[in-house]
Amino acid sequence: MLYAIFCYNDEAAVGAWSQEEDEAVMERLAAVQAPLAAAGRLGPVARLLPTTAATTLRKGREPIILDGPFAETKEQLLGFYVIECESLDAALDVARDLAIANPGTGSYEIRPIRYYAPNAATDI
C-alpha cells in the first residue's frame, strides 16, 4: 500500500531555526529516508516554501485568487513523503522515526493513496 505522510508544523517555529539547526534536522530526516530508499519504498519527497509564497484559487463561477494558503491554521503543511508500506502500523513506524529525528511541535498525517501517477506526463 502506498501512503503519503504529510508534515505539519508551525512554520514560524521552523523558520526560527538557525541554519545549523535546520541542516542538522534535515540530516537526521535523511537518515530515516535512507533505508526506505535502499529498499525501493521511497517515492517523491518534497519540502515546501513558506505559506507566504502560496496562492489559492477558490473555485466558483468566477474563480477567486487569494494570497496565502488554503486555510489559516496554527500548523501548516510544510512537506510530504510518499512511501510504500505493508500496513498502517509500518507507516506509523516511519512517522515515529521522523518524529524522533525532528522532535517538538507539529504532526505527521498518514494518508493512504488512492491513485498514484509518479510519471503522469509519460503515462498519458
Binding site: D10, A12, A13, G15, A16, W17, E21, P103, G104, T105
Partner: peptide, 15 residues
Amino acid sequence: MTDPSWIHGALVAAR
C-alpha cells in the same frame, strides 16, 4: 523530547 532546540524555536516564533 528533551532536545531544547525545538523549544527555543517555538519560544522565538511565539514571542
